[in-house]
Amino acid sequence: MGKYIIRRFLWAIPVLLAIITATFLLAHSIPGGPFDYAGEKQLPESVRQNLMRKYRLDEPIYVQLGLWIWDALRFDFGPSYYSRGQTVNDILRRTFPISAQLGILSLLLALLIGIPAGTIAAVKQNTPLDYTATFVAILGVSIPNMVLGPLLIWIFSVHLGWFPAARWGVDYTQLYLGFFPPLTHKFWSHAFLPMITLGTAYSASIARLTRASLLQVIREDYMRTAKAKGLHGFRVIVVHGLRNSLIPVATVLGPMFAGIVTGSLIVERIFGIPGMGRYFVDSITNRDYPVILGTTLVYSVLLVLGNLLVDLSYAWLDPRIRYD
């Protein structure tokens, strides 16, 4: 097991290097640079030179890449070109926890709703309950966030006044250990609508997956055996069936985890949440190369970790799977 994990981590190194190199080259090959203009005004060549020198952009491109990687190894992701005086570390430190809180909460909500809903649908297959659950699930997958978000704000915040319209309940200075939010009333009231918006689609797809794979498992021999042994109903399904049927669910959770945690750009934008989602697009628009690289790296590391966790969870979910 330990060996396996080490091997996976070693495998991640070339992947991450390749990702960084590809991102770097792609970002630099987009025409236009970070310091050509201030607003609409073209900067004089002299001013541009000063800026290029200050940020070492006058070096050959491979040197820049090398310098960045070297710094990144010591967890220094460089300065932001756009937010002067801020470093990428500053930006990540304050935006990542908030995106992660939103993401983890939404994901938990999604699991909390998705797995029971899927289970019920599977157990009561082809009953009205199943159809309703399936229909709602598919509807959930099909409504885009950019429609659901403004709709929820309008109904629950502006009309009913139950929740604040926007923003996040805590800021990065109030976090415990730089990550955990105080679970105050204020926090939840701000978190509720974005959580629902983001969680709906995920809970729906989890429900569908759970239903489908549980239906397969229910027909496996060992389930028949269990039933034959006189075990009944829900207990069998939950104890024996559900655990096995969660493997496909776990498979999608990895990428889902990375995607959801690093910010659902649209939800953060609509609700004015200061997460890292907007940096994925803004950094490209601003040609803020270190921020592009920093956010990409965070995303990639999460993806690697997510996939690893998924593979490890297979072993827990299905004891027949072994790693060595």
């Binding site: 992947v15 990702i19 991102t23 792609l26 993806l303 996939n307």
Partner: peptide
């Protein structure tokens, strides 16, 4: 394929689209 699977594809799509649109 495993190698590509580790890539943050959404970011690459955004980058690629920005690149295509600019170029």
């Amino acid at each position: 394929v495993d190698f590509l699977y580790g890539f943050p594809l959404l970011i690459f799509i955004i980058l690629l689209q920005a690149y295509f649109k600019a170029v």
